[in-house]
Design a protein around this nucleic acid. Structure first.
Ligand SMILES: [Zn+2]
Ligand SMILES: [Zn+2]
Ligand SMILES: [Zn+2]
Ligand SMILES: [Zn+2]
Lengths: 138, 138
DNA sequence: TTACACCTTAGAGTTAGGTCCAAGGTCAAT
DNA sequence: ATTGACCTTGGACCTAACTCTAAGGTGTAA
């Protein structure tokens, strides 16, 4: 059994984060001491690893809640469910990447058009393009 | 001169947004009517176009404030300043894209490893990989 | 027993960029 | 004179995921 600070240190999160996860239904300590201290067991530890791992994979805490509920009741869910969920997430990530690539391309165009000299910015093509609005397509 | 609603409609933003921009030092109407209505001129209109345009290019409102202050005092800034600023922004966007691509790759690996069948999720490789933590490198 | 590190709670604050609301004033048309 | 569309303000609320504070209880070692 771990106290909150032990578990936090073990997996490099803060105690605040653990209390936050509990409050939001992601990780409930398996017990409390007589004096009210949170006590976590190894199953809790693995759940926290799951949460951290899933976060790194781009899942939000809300997503993770859903994944955990599937995990808890594995019997009534299929591989198909989990895969669909993950594919949907991938699609969201794909969309974000597309948006950022469009922005990247706009910025590159701005940078290419500007000579970057030490002369006054009065005629800087970056500023004038932004002023003129449709200088860049989006 | 435009009232707030006119300008908002013209550039497809809300009046709330215009008041928000004013409050945050981005766009101050050139005048007020005798009864306190905000009045915007064509220079204000162009500034708003600038803001919208820069936002589309991935600049935050804080960035845009800085760009506007350069724009207002073009004389004491060089092309070089503006270009550096934009390059720095591009670098931030590049970093975000890299992070997302790492996430994308993790998700793809998860999806590939899961057969997606209608059988129970008890042995779903997505769930077990997330449980095992280091199943995916980050 | 006193110091000190640990733990508890409720609740406020953070960031970014708005969005919404209430209570009320203004303007044009009927 | 009364609609109804417009405008004003201050301030609360929203998302996401924490982060911090205050005020206090607990555990252990010197
Ligand atoms: Zn992962
Ligand atoms: Zn330039
Ligand atoms: Zn642009
Ligand atoms: Zn599976």
């Amino acid at each position: 059994m771990y106290q909150i600070g032990e578990l936090a240190k073990k997996l490099s999160v803060t105690t605040d984060t653990l209390r936050y996860y509990e409050k939001h239904g992601l990780l409930k300590p398996s017990a409390r001491s007589a004096t009210g201290y949170r006590l976590y067991n190894d199953s809790n530890l693995r759940s926290l690893q799951f949460i951290i791992s899933a976060k790194k994979c781009g899942f939000t805490l809300k997503d993770i809640q859903e994944l955990l509920s599937i995990q808890v009741d594995k019997g009534s869910h299929s591989c198909h469910d989990v895969k669909s969920f993950t594919e949907h997430k991938l699609q969201q990530v794909d969309e974000k990447i597309s948006e950022l690539i469009a922005i990247q391309s706009s910025l590159k165009k701005l940078i290419q058009a500007c000579d970057g000299g030490d002369k006054s910015a009065a005629n800087c093509s970056i500023l004038t393009t932004l002023e003129d609005d449709d200088g860049i397509t989006h």
